[in-house]
Design a protein around this nucleic acid. Sequence first.
RNA 1: GCUCCCAUCGUCUAGCGGUCUAGGACGUGGCCCUCUCAAGGCCAAAACACGGGUUCGAUUCCCGUUGGGAGCACCA
Length: 474
Amino acid sequence: MSIRTRFAPSPTGFLHIGGARTALYNWAWTRRHGGTFVLRIEDTDRARSTAESEAAIVDGLRWLGMDWDEGLSRQSERGDLHRAAIETLLARDRAYRCVCTPDQIEARKQQVTATGAKWTYDGRCAEAAHGPACGPHTVRLRVPKDGRLGWEDLVFGPSGQDAREIGDMVIRRSDGSPLYHLAVVVDDVDMKITHVIRGADHLNNTPFQIALYRALDAPLPQFAHVPLIVGADGRKLSKRRDPVSVQHFREAGYLPEALCNWLVRIGWSHGDQELFSLDEIRALFSLEAAHRSSGQADPQKLDWINQAWIKQLPVGRLVAELQPFLAAVTDPGAAAAATGDAGLPGLVDLLRERSKTLAEMAARARFFALPDDALDYDAKAVQKHWKPALRAPLAALRDALAALPAWEPAGVEAAFEGVLAQHEGLGRGPLAQAVRIAVTGSAASPGIYETLAVLGRDRTAARLARALAAWPAG
RNA sequence: GCUCCCAUCGUCUAGCGGUCUAGGACGUGGCCCUCUCAAGGCCAAAACACGGGUUCGAUUCCCGUUGGGAGCACCA
């Protein structure tokens, strides 16, 4: 039997990292085993579901590098199937109509829970045999009163609950709409899903869903529950407290490779390996190696992983990824110009060692994208490093650079050395800092020779001239 | 409260009875390198929650305790 899996998010917000990881596990495992992976939007809650959210989920998954088969299906478009399944259940007496109102149930529930016992539906309508014309009613599944609703979880091992813990759950609202559990099970059966890989928060839902499979006379799929990703406080991720949306990380300058790498390692490991490409994830991911305990998402580890990817990705890819971030710290025109500049790849190569995110790289590359006459100087750096006495050496350097036959790091360094030799007592550091600020506006940049080499002869000259013109007098 | 689940450094984890004076990674501290910022190299501090068993022998198996989490809807 061929493997079929699905990722079934509800479109009630952005794709969040917990869902992204569940999708990643599904995707990787399915691809590894040559199965079919489908995406099903669980939009039965019409009030909370939005088209924007669905688009965000689709975009997020694509951006991360995942693909799926057989298009995209929406649960809302399968209502007929759900309704028919409920009718079948009713006809076979595996379910019954219940006329208890929410208020009545609430009152009875209060009585039971007051004694400390656990409430499950008391079965008042179970034997009443209400017909279709019984007035406003819900439909409840007949859940066995004894026995066990168990399964062999691919991650958690033997799992289950005693059937009596569950109670007869509602599968159709009084307005005729089916509930989530019914829809999920009917869809999974209909789509011939063989392996349900989902978050451990569904562990408690599984027994009831198993009862549903049995009532439907459908074969049980294999279940694999993966541990939750929790926030720094150890609790379930909260949109309020934690940065959770994939979009957020994308906008903060994290690469999809890094995000996948980070997420796959929370709850799964492969020996001591830390870095995994999407191809490696697809080749190596196994449910046997998945963990059972929940894990925290450590943003500092993400930073490190992101930089690791920044360090090894092809420069052309980084240049392209960098553009929007460059535009954000300058303007679209400057960013486009910089992206077309032959010197940018060289700068990116210098910056990969010092950038944890694309946003940070853009901030460090800003000086390059800015027009020469628009560069702003860091006031504190100027105060500290632009000493009047450095004016003459700087002018000498300007001349030495202008006389350089070839514009490359070694030549620039030679020019520096020449100026240093001419000026007794002048240190390499002070001169480098003065130039660095003149050319980048900041006291921190890649090596000064490499920086000038990448900036180019003309732009360096323009910036030195501008700095000299603004130089503090003794 | 009830049901279910989990438990190795601060965090992610290796470990699937002896190889553990418990390994790696992030982070942290120190040193080196150095024109700044990084990157890199070296070193260091840092964990088997507790108590019972089982066993010749438990981080590894079992049971409790404690701690944490999830679920208890006519939400998904």
